[in-house]
């Protein structure tokens, strides 16, 4: 009996496609898939989140700010900020159940932010850089506007839903490699309020400042201040920049608003009340 082993041609059991091509197709597909999920679910979450009653949001927020400081100086600052915020809030058509509570944190962090349940946190680092009350009012009004627009709960909703969806995908893919990559992609998208949310908050804030003081002098100065801080510390910009990007663009947006509504850009600046003139 004759036996032979004919030569088997190459490429039967192995695809000859270049691995980088496969890589490009797969990574491109995955990124597109994630973007689609983030956009669709994020949009759904946003539209649902604004329907959550504010009282629920307050419950989620829980105990924020209950640890009111015993320090009388700090409590005085908090009271002063609170009254300024309430003055501004009168011009912002807040729903009756929505109460703003301002908290002051004695810390170098150059930041202020709004979070769930109507809490606005102001850091000493930012307060001590405020040149006058008008600038401070612009910052506070901006954060109140976030609360008014329900941005914290929208952000939370988006973050939770998108995070869950990504966890589901990476769970299916069954690899810690993709976990780490998609995980960070997810946090990047849910990091802060969107640019549109920031812009909308600016618009409401400058309107409130205009109504409160009768002019918007000092409001744009806030962004000049931020741009300057950004330029001074290019390597370590203030935390406020990370969550509120693009100072110069927002400054122009505000100037545009003032122009549109004929708000005077000149006016007497109100100095900061004595109690708010803090320093380290």
């Amino acid at each position: 009996m004759e036996y032979e082993n004919p030569e088997i041609p190459e490429g039967i059991n192995v695809s000859r496609e270049h691995p980088l091509k496969e890589f490009a197709v797969l990574v491109g597909g995955t990124v597109a898939l994630i973007l689609a999920i983030v956009l669709i679910l994020g949009w759904l979450a946003e539209s649902i989140a604004t329907r959550i009653p504010f009282s629920y949001e307050q419950e989620i927020a829980g105990d924020i700010g209950h640890d009111v400081s015993d320090n009388p100086a700090q409590a005085a600052i908090e009271r002063e900020l609170q009254s300024l915020a309430e003055g501004l809030a009168k011009h912002m058509q807040l729903p009756p159940e929505m109460r703003i509570r301002v908290h002051y944190v004695d810390d170098d962090t150059v930041n202020a932010f709004a979070t769930l349940g109507g809490h606005v946190i102001m850091f000493r680092g930012l307060l001590e850089k405020m040149p006058n009350e008008n600038a401070l009012a612009m910052v506070l009004a901006h954060e109140i506007a976030h609360v008014r627009h329900r941005d914290p709960i929208v952000s939370l909703g988006r973050g939770v839903v998108v995070g869950l969806a990504l966890a589901a995908i990476t769970g299916v893919s069954g690899s810690n490699l993709s976990d780490s990559v998609f995980g960070s992609a997810g946090t990047l998208t849910a990091l802060s309020f969107s640019r549109n949310q920031e812009r909308a908050a600016d618009t409401s804030a400058v309107a409130a400042v205009a109504a409160h003081y009768g002019h918007v002098n000092g409001a744009t100065a806030v962004f000049d201040l931020f741009s300057r801080l950004e330029a001074e510390h290019p390597l370590k910009p203030p935390e406020f920049m990370a969550s509120h990007p693009n100072s110069s663009g927002r400054r122009d947006g505000i100037a545009e608003q003032a122009d549109l509504h004929d708000w005077p850009t000149e006016g007497i600046l109100t100095p900061l009340p004595q109690v708010l003139q803090v320093s380290e």
Binding site: L26, T30, S173, S175, L177
Partner: peptide, 22 residues
């Protein structure tokens, strides 16, 4: 590492796991 990553992406889309074929 590269092949393993490709294969993990294949788990999402399906198809020939070319990186493990070779």
């Amino acid at each position: 590492y590269f092949k393993r990553f490709l294969a993990s992406l294949r788990n999402i889309f399906g198809g020939r796991v070319q990186s493990y074929e070779s």
